[in-house]
Computed example of a mutant assay.
Amino acid sequence: MPRWLPRAVILVLALYACFQLASWAFHQLVALLLNILIAFFLALAVEPAVSRMSARGMRRGIATFLVFLGVLVLGLGFVALMGSMLAGQIVDMVDRFPQYLDSLIGSINKTFRTDLSRLAIQDSLLHSDWLQKYVQNSATGVLDVSATVLGGLFKLLTIGLFSFYFAADGPRLRRALCSVLPPARQAEVLRAWEIAVAKTGGYLYSRGLMALISAVAHYVVLVVLGVPYAPALALWVGLVSQFIPTIGTYLAGALPMLIAFTVNPWYAVYVLVFVVIYQQFENYMLQPKLTSRTVDIHPAVAFGSVIAGTALLGAIGALIAIPAVATLQSFLGAYIKRYEVADDPGVWRRERSTTS
């Protein structure tokens, strides 16, 4: 047996063990890595405001704290406003539920010539087996819901802390990264960082503008229908549909439909139709054009990047796909040499013939 064979076998086994260990560690830390990625993009989003306040003489840590405090106050105020409105509407719906049920039963009896009564239906529901099983499953699922809520709060806290440190120690972090690179690479890293800040800010600007347009459009519809709390509902639709990827549209449209149902059941149908029509207008006309201008990428590339990001990272990928692709495109644009396209006489003659 050759001398090198035992060493080669040991080396291969060691490399395989290291690969398995690295793969296991990556799968265990993938949630943390995703949180850090979200925090990094949030830090890039608030970087312009923090830098502007720091340039006026304020300490960077205090400036970052004030920016995050303002975002937190606005978020809590929005949640409190929507929570109070939703609680009042739920109480009103519960009080008026017997009227809705009597109206529905009356329509069924008139249409199908039946003899149903609300008391009989309530009695059969209360003594049904599936309702008892549902109550038991709901009681056992309270712990799961509590664990999910606590996990979500811990995730938000982790993202908030990392994004605060990234924003507050941005210059120090850039110096630490550049200190291990040669001068030529340092310029490239700093340029990529500046591009990422600009593109992420442009993306959030486009999202904020689309949220404003969506809020105004839905506000007009809700006011015409006479739905109560129209300003709060319009603000809900604008923010949720733009800043919660994938399921944000459905969450945004469900609440106005619910409130409109308390006024008139047909109003809920009207709101649903408008939400669907507006969503198609936004997806195929407004969003591609606006995003391509603010982030400077082609609408098809923006649409494809969202699909690819969703396939790779889910909702998180859909949220950060466009600024990431825009940053990569702008950074690589400096290293791609473009040439003039030679005119094809045949193509030129065909174009002139079609225009004439």
Rank of each mutant, 00 (worst) to 15 (best):
Q280E: 15
L212I: 09
A234I: 04
Y278A: 09
E194A: 08
V221K: 00
L222V: 00
W193I: 02
F274G: 03
A196L: 09
L177F: 04
G201D: 08
S179M: 08
S214E: 12
A230E: 01
V197N: 09
Q242K: 09
Y219S: 10
V263D: 11
A176Y: 03
Q186L: 07
E188R: 06
F261P: 10
L239K: 00
P228Q: 14
S206C: 10
A254N: 04
A234V: 02
I247E: 10
L209S: 07
S179G: 13
N264G: 03
A232N: 00
T249R: 07
A184Y: 15
R185W: 11
M210N: 09
I244H: 03
A187H: 13
H218P: 13
A198E: 12
V263T: 15
V271L: 02
K199N: 10
I277F: 13
Q242S: 04
Q280R: 14
Y267K: 07
W236A: 03
C178A: 12
V221A: 01
A230R: 00
W236Q: 01
L181P: 00
Y219E: 06
P182A: 14
V220L: 09
T246C: 15
I259K: 04
A196R: 05
L235D: 01
V237A: 00
A211F: 01
Q186F: 03
V216F: 15
I247Q: 03
H218D: 11
I213R: 08
H218L: 09
R175S: 09
L255T: 03
V240K: 02
A252D: 02
R174P: 15
A230H: 05
Y205M: 11
P231G: 08
M210C: 13
L177D: 01
L173Y: 08
D169G: 12
P245V: 00
S214L: 15
L251T: 07
G226A: 06
T246D: 14
R175L: 11
D169E: 03
R175T: 12
F274A: 01
Y203I: 08
V237H: 02
A232R: 05
Y229P: 00
I277A: 14
L258M: 11
V275Q: 13
G208A: 06
V237W: 05
G253Y: 06
V224Q: 01
W193Y: 08
Y278H: 06
L233W: 05
V263R: 04
V220F: 12
P265Q: 14
